[in-house]
Design a protein around this nucleic acid. Structure first.
Lengths: 198, 198
DNA sequence: GGGGTCATGTAATAGGTTACATGATTCT
DNA sequence: AGAATCATGTAACCTATTACATGACCCC
């Protein structure tokens, strides 16, 4: 069990027993789906895995003379412990990850530097849009009196976004600097590799 | 085809035709496996997908009177184009991702603030270790005269690491500040939720 | 009262990872 | 020469995503 959706399920069930559909609704309503990848199919799968692992258990299947039958799940003691341990580990120990931009940077030599500069400028505007979007929503929540702890994940995203913006700006000048810019050398090397195949 | 290992395969095959095992070796030798998740099984799968998509093709199966038969693949024209388009998109357009730390932050209220502070301190040392590891290796490469472009993905990682370190430090003081720290309120709320279930 | 959409799940398919297989080489 | 390890690939399994199914409610 390494799907983080499972952690969200465990966490939500600490509030009260729920059925999967309700969990999914809450996940979206509270915007946790921005931080934890969610789709309904995965949710049902994860819930079954949690049952198998003994971390949650079905407490009832209710039908309020309404819609399809719904199974309600509750957290077990083991589930509560596992949830806490899991969270502790995620906070205490940084893990190596593979963001898409890192992958792209590692292979960026295949593009011509002029094109790269244009693409980086495009990225800057995208990042900037994300940044204003997030910071506005954070400020709106704070203005409504919400405790900043509930926005801490977005605050983190903002910090990373700003670092990335700074990095991109720096990268552009590294390429284009008229004195020491990497552009010319890069372009030359690029021409080489484009000729050689034929 | 959204597996970034596929992008790496396309990119490597621009140099010359290779067999999968060789691609895997190079991926590790050049440290690209730090930026793109690699394991052998996935590599063979991805190669098959690329063949089906017409982006690469088998050019020979050689057996140098040695080990098992090896199939050598070469890039097609479509493959070259796809590789470039894919890279352009990754550079030009930021995508929403789901780092584990973001998920954890979004649910961190389930832990007691005192414990969170301890875990964040632990994280700081882990991040700091990563930081010195990366910056030493970058400097070593530069000292050997390697062009900084070949380290650009690690430079980016450094920038993000530093932003995360700053964020964590800030978060700790937000919790522990003797005037306005979130600790007391958080702890109280935490006690509430721990009582209610019973 | 029939067409749309909401609520809830299940099943089929595609994607990725781990475990296994097999001959060659190298070491002692 | 037998044990350990390398080189290479395949197959089995597990995970995740998409597509489908079904009855209720809601609107004109």
């Amino acid at each position: 069990m390494r799907n983080l959706l499972g952690l969200a399920v465990l966490s939500y069930l600490t509030e009260r027993p729920m059925h999967p559909y309700e969990i999914g609704e809450l996940l979206v309503a509270r915007d946790h789906a921005r931080s934890i990848k969610y789709n309904r199919g995965s949710l049902y799968m994860v819930v079954n895995q949690l049952v198998k692992a003994g971390l949650i258990e079905a407490t009832a299947t209710i039908r309020d003379t309404q819609r399809p039958e719904r199974t309600v799940y509750a957290l077990t003691d083991a589930g509560r412990g596992e949830m806490l341990d899991w969270l502790r580990e995620l906070i205490g120990q940084p893990v190596h990850e593979y963001p898409q931009f890192v992958a792209a940077l590692s292979l960026i030599g295949a593009l011509h530097p002029d094109e790269v500069v244009a693409l980086l400028r495009q990225r800057q505007t995208g990042l900037e849009q994300q940044r204003v979007g997030i910071s506005q929503s954070v400020e709106a929540c704070l203005a409504r009196g919400m405790h900043p702890l509930f926005q801490v994940e977005e605050t983190y995203r903002l910090a990373v976004l700003e670092a990335e913006l700074a990095f991109v700006a720096r990268f552009i000048t590294d390429i284009t600097d008229p004195e020491t810019g990497w552009g010319p050398g890069w372009a030359a090397h690029h021409a080489d590799r484009d000729e050689s195949p034929h």
